[in-house]
Design a protein around this nucleic acid. Structure first.
Lengths: 154, 154
DNA sequence: TATTGTTATACTCTATAACTATA
DNA sequence: TATAGTTATAGAGTATAACAATA
C-alpha cells in the first residue's frame, strides 16, 4: 500500500482536498438539475444502482451503502415503491426486517438509464482523449473506495 | 494530449459516466453532512472559494460560476453577509449591479477552512500513495474544466 | 433492553415566477 | 423593452427525535 513517499506537500494535499470537495459539490449540483425532468432523481437512481450491483438487501443496509440515514432511505424507498421500481418481501427469519429488491421494471429502467440518460456527462466525457478517459476511470474507482472506506472487491 | 483514439468502448464510456455520476452524488452527500456543525455550509464555502480565486464580482457572475440560478445566489449571499464574510459595493457605472467581495473575516475563514476543515477528505487522501494523489490531482483539474466548460443547458 | 424500520417535524438547497429598479 | 437583482413560493433531500414492532 503506502510504499511510496509523498510528492505532494502538505499544502498541496490540503489544496487537493479543497479543490476536490468543491468540484464534487458543483458537479453534483449539475447532475441533479440535469435530471429534473427524469422519472427518477439521481438520489433514487443511486439507490437502484446499488440494488443492481449488490443485490437485494434490507432498508438499513441500503441506507448504509448510500451513506444516508434510515429515515431518508424510508422516503427514497416509498417513492420507488410507488413507481413500481422496487418490491419488498419480509425477512424469512427476522420479523422486523424487510428485504428490498429491484422489480423487473426497476431493472429495465436502470439499465436503460445507464445507457441513455447520463447524456450530459457522457457527451462531455466523449470529447476527452483516451488518456483522459482512462485517468477518470482510475480516479472514479479510487473515489468509490474512498466513499465505501475500503476497496471494492468486484 | 489531443490524441482522439478511444480505448474505452462505447459501453465502457457509458459505465464510466454512470459510475462517476453516482460516486459524485455519494461523495457530495458525505461532504455536506461532514460540515453540519461548521459555521458555513459547503455551498457557502464554495461561493467564498470562487470569490477568493476569481476576485470580486457581481451576484449574477458568481451564480454563473457556481452553476446556480440568481435567486439561489441571493440566498447564499444573504447568509454570508449576515455572517460578515462578504461585503457589497455598488457598481461604479451601472446602478443595477452590485459587486460582492470577501471581507477580511471571509478571507481568513476560507483560508483556515482550506487548511483545517476538509479534514475527513484530507485524512483519506493522506493514506493514498503519491501516485494515487497525483492521479486525483489531475482528475480534479479535468473535472473542474468539465464544470466550467459545460454550457448551462443544452 | 436492543434493534429495525417508520412517522413527525424541521432545516437546507435549489428552482421558477413575479416583481422592482435601472439602463 | 431589456437586464440585474430580489422576493415569494414550492419541492426535493436530508437530518434528528420519537414511536411501534419484534428479538
Amino acid at each position: 500500500m503506502n510504499d511510496r513517499r509523498e510528492i505532494l506537500g502538505s499544502d498541496d494535499q490540503a489544496k487537493l482536498a479543497s479543490d476536490l470537495a468543491l468540484v464534487i459539490i458543483r458537479l453534483a449540483r449539475k447532475l441533479r438539475c440535469q435530471r429534473v425532468n427524469s422519472p427518477v432523481s439521481i438520489t433514487q437512481l443511486s439507490a437502484l444502482a446499488t440494488l443492481l450491483a449488490e443485490g437485494p438487501m434490507s432498508p438499513g443496509a441500503l441506507a448504509a451503502h448510500e451513506r444516508v440515514r434510515p429515515p431518508s432511505m424510508t422516503r427514497i424507498l416509498a417513492a420507488l415503491e410507488e413507481l413500481g421500481l422496487i418490491a419488498r418481501t419480509g425477512h424469512p427469519a427476522d420479523g422486523r426486517q424487510t428485504i428490498v429488491a429491484l422489480s423487473k421494471q426497476g431493472t429495465e429502467l436502470i439499465e436503460a438509464d445507464n445507457r441513455d440518460s447520463q447524456r450530459w456527462l457522457h457527451q462531455h466525457l466523449n470529447r476527452l482523449t483516451s488518456d483522459q478517459q482512462a485517468l477518470l476511470r482510475q480516479a472514479t474507482d479510487l473515489l468509490a473506495e474512498l466513499v465505501t472506506g475500503a476497496p471494492q472487491s468486484s
